[in-house]
């Protein structure tokens, strides 16, 4: 894994180095035999998916590979047909989503999911008011606003934000829960190159400074190459490959199914 740290800032390198020497207790998320069937379709098929503390993992795969389904099984938005989910050593398979969130999980949905009729400040307040009161709450709200680059737009209704600003706002809200693991479902879909760079910086910064582990679903290979420590390729509901960006890019089988594949659209 250490070879994936090339070109990253030192803090991330250090995190990765720590992980390389880590033992099982560093595994923050682990699914075992996770299976989800929708009628006759097996969307997720016997997947053992593990994420280590502080890791920055990308989850890629062609459309319909089961990436979002896997994330939904982890958050509890969907219940598995078979298998278990463990988070920080506890089984969370039977827990409601909000209980999993309180264990240290957080998610940004695929479609930007902010409260459109509320102001940006009210949006940011919601995750934070559960965790802090008084001046600490005010500070954390100010921090979350500035980290999202939205301090000047705090009193604007969220529906008036651009798509990119809504993505930043939702990432800010998800991150302000102080999670140990943050799941991002296509955080840069439909964004400009500049906005993509901002989001990439934001993710690597949160990972390095606050030691938040990430699982990021993304189609954009340049973006994946820029942020990922480690990549998991899902294909037809199964774990197809795992490895560094170089290993994955060099793998002809992955090329075939996903990266400019000839036989599979």
């Amino acid at each position: 894994m250490s070879d994936t740290a090339d070109g990253m800032d030192p803090a991330v390198k250090q995190t990765s180095a720590e992980l390389a020497t880590g033992v099982d207790t560093d595994t923050i998320l682990q699914t075992e035999g996770l299976t989800k069937r929708f009628g006759g379709l097996t969307a997720i098929d016997d997947v053992d998916f593990g994420v280590e503390a502080g890791e920055l993992r990308c989850l890629i795969g062609p459309n319909g590979a089961g990436k979002s389904t896997l994330l939904n099984l982890v958050t509890g938005a969907l219940s598995p047909s078979e298998g278990e989910v463990y988070f920080e050593g506890h089984e969370i398979t039977g827990l409601d989503p909000h209980e999993r969130i309180r264990h240290g999980l957080s998610i940004k949905f695929q479609v930007p999911s902010v409260y459109e009729d509320l102001t940006v400040r009210e949006n940011v307040r919601l995750p934070i008011q559960r965790l802090a009161a008084g001046s600490e709450r005010d500070e954390r709200m100010a921090d979350a606003l500035s980290a999202s680059g939205l301090s000047a737009k705090a009193d604007v209704t969220a529906s008036a934000l651009s798509h990119g600003e809504q993505q930043q706002l939702e990432i800010g809200m998800a991150a302000s829960l102080d999670p140990d693991l943050l799941l991002l479902d296509e955080p840069v879909a439909g964004l400009s190159v500049d906005e993509r760079t901002e989001i990439a910086d934001r993710i690597t910064q949160l990972n390095a400074e606050r030691d938040i582990a990430f699982v990021v679903i993304e189609h954009d290979t340049d973006f994946v190459a820029e942020i990922a420590d480690h990549i998991t390729v899902l294909h037809q509901g199964e774990t197809f490959r795992e490895g560094s960006i170089e290993e994955i890019e060099a793998d002809p089988e992955v090329q075939r199914i996903y990266l400019g594949g000839e036989t599979d659209a």
């Binding site: 989503p97 909000h98 969130i101 409260y115 509320l118 995750p127 008011q129």
Partner: peptide, 23 residues
């Protein structure tokens, strides 16, 4: 705070659940 959570539930139940509130 509680009233704001009520409004959050009205606006988007899934987002509110995923902020750790028992919708």
């Amino acid at each position: 705070d509680y009233g704001r959570v009520m409004v959050a539930v009205r606006e988007d139940e899934d987002r509110t659940e995923m902020l750790g509130y028992d919708v």
